[in-house]
Design a binder for these strands. Structure first.
Length: 253
DNA sequence: ATGGTGGTCCAACCA
């Protein structure tokens, strides 16, 4: 099984990139983030024509997540249960024997801001819900845009980012609390190039200079890790005309 | 030290 995650920063603008990538890479499940589109406007037909079914949790202007999958998903959950939130950031579904949770985690803006406090509260609620998901599903994958760089090696310039948003101790502790549920950062199960990132700021020629962060992750439970074959980041779409600022990340198992 | 880009939607917010 091959699963992948991609923050597309507007599905309207990136539709052709996603269609081309699906046809080239043929993942069983692709999770999208930052649709910036209402659920009812989602282009189901374009994906249906290339053999992908859609499960969508969208909203106007901001946020929004979706699954594109070769098989029908079941037991769909949208948003974190018991966490009141107008922002559409979460969708979960079961594909075959694998539970997949697709996340667009809050950015947090800056350490100490209101949005930062929201980010930490959101992660606490996420952890509590994922504890029950992990109990009921042996094969659990949790992927998406986490908006947290796990370690300094996931940051182009750790000194300048130290303690900043996406890298603060409290954010990394929130990520560790998810790993403590029995999940692993699947990218690090395999040898990877140095300076591997998944997001590059549009400004200051960030991609050309490889000034990026690895904030898009695929977390996997022990039963998935046991059969993991390979994991990676596909930088090719980031080099296209009018790209998303994120690259797709994937795990095969 | 400052400001740069891009998406949504047309002023201002978000990343």
């Amino acid at each position: 099984m091959k699963i992948a995650s991609w923050n597309v920063n507007s599905i309207r603008v990136r539709l052709d990139h996603v269609l081309e990538w699906l046809q080239a890479e043929q993942p069983d499940v692709l999770g999208l983030q930052e649709l910036k589109m209402p659920t009812d406007d989602f282009p189901h037909d374009a994906f249906g024509e290339i053999g992908y079914q859609c499960l969508v949790n969208g909203q106007k202007t901001y946020n929004g997540v979706a699954f594109l999958a070769r098989s029908e998903g079941s037991d769909v959950i949208t948003d974190i249960p018991a966490f009141e939130d107008p922002q559409r950031r979460v969708i979960a579904a079961t594909f075959g024997d694998t539970r997949v949770v697709n996340l667009y985690c809050p950015n947090g803006q800056s350490v100490g801001s209101e949005k930062y406090e929201y980010k930490l509260a959101w992660f606490a609620a996420l952890r509590d819900w994922l504890a029950t998901e992990a109990e009921t599903h042996k094969k659990l994958a949790v992927f998406g845009d986490f908006n947290i760089a796990p370690e300094d090696r996931d940051v182009h310039d750790p000194a300048s980012w130290e303690g900043k948003i996406l890298c603060s101790n409290a954010e990394r502790a929130a990520l560790q609390a998810l790993l403590d549920l029995g999940l692993q950062d699947s990218y690090r199960l395999f040898d990877q190039p140095d300076e591997s990132f998944s997001w590059w700021d549009y400004r200051m020629a960030g991609f050309r200079r490889n000034r990026g962060l690895r904030i898009d992750l695929v977390l996997a439970s022990a039963d998935i890790v046991a059969t993991a074959k390979a994991a990676g980041i596909d930088k090719e779409p980031r080099a296209l005309e009018r790209p998303s600022d994120h690259a797709p990340v994937w795990l095969a198992f």
